[in-house]
Design a protein around this nucleic acid. Structure first.
Lengths: 139, 139
DNA sequence: TTCCTTATTGTAACTTCTTACAATAATAGA
DNA sequence: TCTATTATTGTAAGAAGTTACAATAAGGAA
């Protein structure tokens, strides 16, 4: 539980308050080390803070993602998962078995610049998900 | 309603049967000319075929997307929308006002090749969504 | 046309996600 | 420390999306 303390100053700097609910949610994401669905976060964080409710989880995940503490990644079929925003990366997902690979952001930089000059949009560095078939599923 | 007839041979070629439910769904997507959420498809297609139910809509949309009749696009917050698969393109979405711009697939080709050789995945040309701020929301 | 196979659908129950609003509690300032 | 402000939370209800399985009907073959 102590780990979430580390986020406190950054949270406060963004105008977010420190609450046991947020601590529990950050704790879970910190220790899982991967992508979790809102439901998974809810189930696990409820062990840390039994009174936790669903709407709080959904709202907190959205808030933390908006403030760049978390990355929201869209995984096949409109599902969304969250993970701690550490280094900038993207995902390749096999649409057959679901296996996921992380890829670096660097190769996308040029592309982003092209899109920005052709559309006027300012792209943010949020998560992009690509779909395909993993080596095992290609046979 | 006649428009859906055009899809009949292609549907049958893929082993899919022609049903009034599918006709209604294709009809709606054909005439809307844009992206529709499953709920929108459900509401509108029910006018064409009043007995239509939700699970049928969700299943049909998935099936048609899998067989490449439709494109499934992930729009902010895990929402999914469908549109007829005509030309290959992607979307830039403003995460403030939701305004959407289509961009060509061509600039992504090189990137896809890089990812394919570095990961062994075979990327399919499905829809990718980028997020950012549109010109109007940058101020 | 009739029958057979099986893809497709509807039913019913459930899980996941969202919304509006009143109650609570974290923080800043006195 | 106490108080006021207001971000955050829980409640309750509902909407959206999913699942398993039995009933139906589309399309091929007799």
């Amino acid at each position: 539980m102590t780990c979430a303390i580390n986020y406190a100053p950054r949270l406060r700097a963004q105008g977010l308050r420190i609450t046991p609910q947020r601590n529990a949610i950050l704790h879970v994401l910190h220790h899982s080390g991967g992508h979790l669905s809102p439901t998974q976060v809810f189930e696990q964080a409820r062990k840390e803070f039994p009174g936790l409710t669903e709407p709080t989880v959904y709202r907190t995940l959205e808030d933390l993602a908006e403030k760049k503490f978390l990355l929201a990644a869209h995984v096949g079929n409109g599902k969304i998962v969250y993970e701690l925003a550490e280094k900038q990366h993207h995902h390749l997902i096999c649409h057959k078995c679901g296996k996921t690979v992380e890829v670096d952001h660097a190769p996308l930089d040029l592309l982003y610049h092209q899109f920005e000059s052709s559309t006027g949009y300012k792209l943010d560095s949020s998560h992009v998900t690509f779909f395909g078939l993993c080596p095992d599923c290609q046979s």
